[in-house]
């Protein structure tokens, strides 16, 4: 900020309320609600928008957009509102990788082209189809060119069985279908998906929140991490 602009305290309070609604993931801006009024103010008043954006920034958050379902906030990594996979369930390294691949797989399945990120159509995903999609992507990969001891991420996923039943016939831990099911469950908890039992078992709607989180934040962060990893590998090759 090069110039300071005085903000009205009532605006600050209203901005804080809007951010609170955004953090309460189940709040809906229905017609006539306070949430809807604040959301409309954010959309139309540039001054109020600045107050909200600035306050969110101070809290380690970023406003990604305001689709009909409500304001979408993304946390700064390491900030007080950041979500880590290990917070959701204790897991070892391989499990963490599998869950991460499932999450990327869901995004790749739902948004196959870059224009899909601009399309507000809600996408349907299915546990079985996500697993099939990931296995098909792994099968289409060329043989990995890794040194003897390193294991490719694709192998970690492919080595797991698709389905291991429990005694009651449900999916047991240690199979990829269970991993996909758990990730879909997390997305529901985080407000990024909704269950769609009327359209079949294991079917979920991906919300606008997930679309914006992937399109405007997660995708770029992952690409940046990919670039860093590749640069480090290249440097290692050159020095070795």
């Amino acid at each position: 900020m090069t110039a300071s602009v005085a903000a009205d305290l009532t605006d600050v309070r209203a901005a804080a309320e809007l951010i609170t609604f955004g953090l309460a993931r189940r709040a809906r801006p229905v017609e006539g609600s306070d949430y809807r009024a604040l959301l409309d103010r954010y959309r139309t008043e540039l001054r109020f928008k600045d107050v909200v954006d600035t306050m969110a920034e101070g809290l380690g958050l970023e406003v990604l957009g305001t689709p009909r379902a409500g304001i979408v906030l993304v946390p700064e990594p390491g900030g007080p509102f950041a979500t880590r996979m290990s917070d959701l369930r204790p897991m070892d390294q391989d499990e963490r990788l599998v869950f991460g691949l499932v999450l990327v797989g869901i995004a790749a399945y739902a948004y196959p082209n870059e224009v899909d990120f601009d399309d507000p159509e809600t996408k349907l995903v299915d546990v079985l189809r996500i697993d099939e999609f990931l296995r098909a992507a792994i099968a289409a990969l060329p043989p990995p060119d890794l040194d003897g001891r390193a294991r490719a991420a694709a192998d970690v996923y492919a080595d797991l069985p698709s389905f291991v039943p429990t005694q009651t016939g449900r999916r047991a831990r240690g199979c990829t279908l269970r991993a996909v099911e758990e990730v879909c469950g997390w997305l529901v908890e985080q407000g990024a998906a909704r269950e769609a039992p009327t359209l079949g078992p294991d079917t979920y709607h991906l919300t606008d929140r997930f679309r914006l989180l992937v399109a405007d934040s997660a995708g770029n962060a992952a690409l940046e991490a990919l670039r860093t990893v590749r640069a480090a590998a290249q440097q290692e090759e050159e020095s070795g």
Binding site: G22, L23, R25, L61, V72, L73, V74, P75, P77, F81, A82, T83, R84, M85, D87, L88, Q93, D94, R96, L97, F99, G100, L101, L103, V104, A107, A108, A137, I138, L141, P142, P144, L146, A150, R151, A152, A153, A154, V156, Y157, W186, L187, Q190, G191, A192, R209, L213, V214, S217, A218, G219, A221, A222, L223, E224, A225, L226, T228, V229, A233
Partner: peptide
């Protein structure tokens, strides 16, 4: 994203998927 991540060694791929998951899972209070 997905295809390059699958082809990476597991440890490197985890860095990519962690970066993705940290953002894609949204906020936690």
């Amino acid at each position: 994203l997905l295809v390059p991540a699958l082809a990476l060694p597991a440890a490197d791929a985890a860095a990519v998927t962690d970066a993705f998951a940290g953002r894609a899972l949204g906020v936690t209070v």
